[in-house]
Design a protein around this nucleic acid. Sequence first.
DNA 1: CCGCCACAGGTAAGCGCTTTCCTGGAGACT
DNA 2: AGTCTCCAGGAAAGCGCTTACCTGTGGCGG
Lengths: 339, 339
Amino acid sequence: MATLADVARRAGVSPATASRVINGSSKPVAEELRERVLRAVADLRYVPNAHAQLLARPQRSVVGVIVHDVSDPYFAEVTRGLQRVATEHGRLLIICNSYRDPERELEYVELLRAQQVAALILAGSGYHDDGFTQRLNEKLAAYEATGGRVAVIGRHDHAGDAVMPANETGAQLLGEELVRLGHRRIGVIAGPRVLTTTTDRLGGLRRALAEHGCPLHDDRIRYAGFDRDGGAAATAELLDAAGDLTAIVALNDSMAVGALAELRRRGVAVPGRVSVAGFDDMPIAGDVTPALTTVRLPLVELGSRAMTLALERAGDRARVEVLPAELVRRASVGAAPPD
Amino acid sequence: MATLADVARRAGVSPATASRVINGSSKPVAEELRERVLRAVADLRYVPNAHAQLLARPQRSVVGVIVHDVSDPYFAEVTRGLQRVATEHGRLLIICNSYRDPERELEYVELLRAQQVAALILAGSGYHDDGFTQRLNEKLAAYEATGGRVAVIGRHDHAGDAVMPANETGAQLLGEELVRLGHRRIGVIAGPRVLTTTTDRLGGLRRALAEHGCPLHDDRIRYAGFDRDGGAAATAELLDAAGDLTAIVALNDSMAVGALAELRRRGVAVPGRVSVAGFDDMPIAGDVTPALTTVRLPLVELGSRAMTLALERAGDRARVEVLPAELVRRASVGAAPPD
DNA sequence: CCGCCACAGGTAAGCGCTTTCCTGGAGACT
DNA sequence: AGTCTCCAGGAAAGCGCTTACCTGTGGCGG
């Protein structure tokens, strides 16, 4: 690998001059030398060693992102927003998938800190695990103490800047809609218990239903993986246990897609006999059949706002932005069938 | 930010000893000193500067990945495979989205080279653009000349290790199936002309149809973006221009989803009046209505094989692995309706 | 004609770490 | 008791780069 010294030697100049030419330093360099250096760079296919540069000029420019899984449409959208703003600021992103493993998340925080990232974004639900939360916050605090910037998406448990989707309010909206349409026996297929997103959404739903006099029964809730297959499995369980449900709320759209598949498999009409609702309004939500009634979360914006917060200077105090949820009525939810 | 020197000072040892303790060097260190160092590390929340480490011990461990767009399900799946193998080898991934911009792709190659990545994976279609291809290959050659490993996914235009999906064969399979089912007036909604993936798939289809005596007419092909909206738009155009088609082949599943949406909007029965086929078998393909007949590509395996090639030592000559495509029959393709 | 200033270019320090090589002390052996 | 060996720990070089500081030259004014 060619080094700056090689370039300088070939161009017959000092490393200092070569460096100045290559980085477009403000210090003037004679045209002839400049050309010799540039030619040497081209001849040697020289690319500066980014690590050496970072050591010499500690100007952190990359941003670390920790998500549960980029290939999950939810995070794919969020990441798109993160990317957009990062690119606008000329920042490179290092994207890490924790695959919902708290330990791995902790490791990645260390790793990104070691990489001297300018900022750290944690996207995705927190965990109901005080031990973990404390360790995470300690690590983040250590990072922030040395000038690192942190922004989280959808986590209550962090003291700093945060962007929050209105999970609870969104779920409430959905609950009210179902009640309004006459549904009384409502089942829920939920993501993992340990995720705060699950409990937040469940909380909003529970509140809405309780307020309208049809409290959510615990035995009408099934927990499973936050994905399509989890949704299908949970739906099967739910149907076997309580066949008289008129509506199923999936706590995200992937699960809702699984529910739809299971219902189709069983020949249950949607929304004729059972209505199905999702959450997130991921891109495919409008294209399944029946099109999914869901709660739209501004996923891309969640990402772009978080990145903006992270790249701005730290405020005097933590900023928490709540981005609103919106009910999207499509075909999968209809009036409850008469008993 | 605490440095190794800080740790050493606090522990009352030399930086050398501190380094040895922290990295678990093979050189023995007295238990007492070891503990003092570890305590200092904990007290100072010390994390080694990864850049300094890489400078001092040039042991490249991160792998760079350039994809068109991780949030595209195709790449999301491929990336999953890449990730898995990388993680198994203890490698961190830097994922870069080129958003199908060749210039950006070139920039990212430079950037990753500057980052001293151990290997570089280029995933996703090549471009019909000789100038670009040449520049890219030059850059990759320069990188490989200094010990960098390169593996590409789905690109003919690179001389080194490659993993190729059987785009052409897959399309042929699909073409034969359509002919077998009596389709003669077949339209195609294709991705951007400039992508080799588009032309490969189109080529396979064209060949199959020609062999069975119903050549593909150029005026039954529409090019658009390789996404859902592109698919919907191209379908609309196609239908307006040639309303008598009995089948529409989308060159990827996202476009097929768009096609389905447009057909539904127009009240055209699928597959009753028009059959629709996709390509890729992305996760949602089985869950739309009607479920998509498509060509399955082993997306995750594409990624895992490429990463494996890249992490193995370079062979004496380039290895090219072709991963087979498989026709997946679902509901969206049926027999051609009688005229 | 001499001295000073301005400025292009070079010298070298230092970023934070690893690792080779060296040192000094303890134990072993004669 | 003296010498040799062994080994834990430290000193220092060096990874590739940037940049503060220094040097030597040419142009200018007095």
